[in-house]
């Protein structure tokens, strides 16, 4: 059975427990669920918010393509991804990846792969808003993130 893939790009927050429940409801084939949530941190008290800009249309399409690639590489039962946009304050959710499989290793690896690819290929950009009122810089892409995505190449 092909993996059930669900991708959402939204400004609203999400409920991690509800997303896990949605993904596994009514199914008895799933033996492992892995979740990753990415949160906004306050950078030692200096950051008031992150402003997430995205390319509507391409963002959904690209994350879906990455999830489909994960489902080709690992025997997944389901994969969900949610990415927020707009103003996000420290402590709030930014991104969620949930993967489900019969066994844990596929779920762990697929979640890791999804996040690595999402960071370097999904069209989102973060701008910092500082506590001192200054609109700060665009967050720079990290070489380490590219390297993380690169290790999955084949």
């Amino acid at each position: 059975m092909p993996a059930t893939i669900a991708v959402r790009v939204q400004s609203e927050d999400f409920d991690v427990a509800a997303e896990i429940a949605d993904l596994s409801r009514g199914r008895t084939d799933i033996g492992a669920v892995v979740t990753f949530s990415g949160l906004c941190r306050d950078e030692a008290g200096t950051l008031a918010a992150l402003e997430l800009e995205h390319y509507a249309g391409m963002a959904e399409r690209e994350i879906t393509a990455i999830a489909e690639e994960a489902a080709r590489r690992w025997p997944l039962s389901a994969a969900s991804a949610i990415h927020r946009f707009g103003m996000i304050r420290p402590g709030e959710n930014i991104v969620l990846v949930v993967t489900a499989s019969a066994h844990r290793q596929a779920a762990f690896d697929a979640a890791n792969f999804l996040m690595d690819y999402l960071k370097s290929r999904a069209p989102f950009w973060k701008k910092e808003h500082r506590v001192d009122g200054r609109v700060g810089d665009w967050v720079s892409a990290k070489d380490s993130d590219d390297a993380a995505a690169e290790r999955w190449r084949r």
Partner: peptide, 10 residues
């Protein structure tokens, strides 16, 4: 055609 900096989502 879209032009943009390296992406920083996630």
């Amino acid at each position: 055609i879209a032009l943009f900096p390296p992406m920083t989502g996630g």
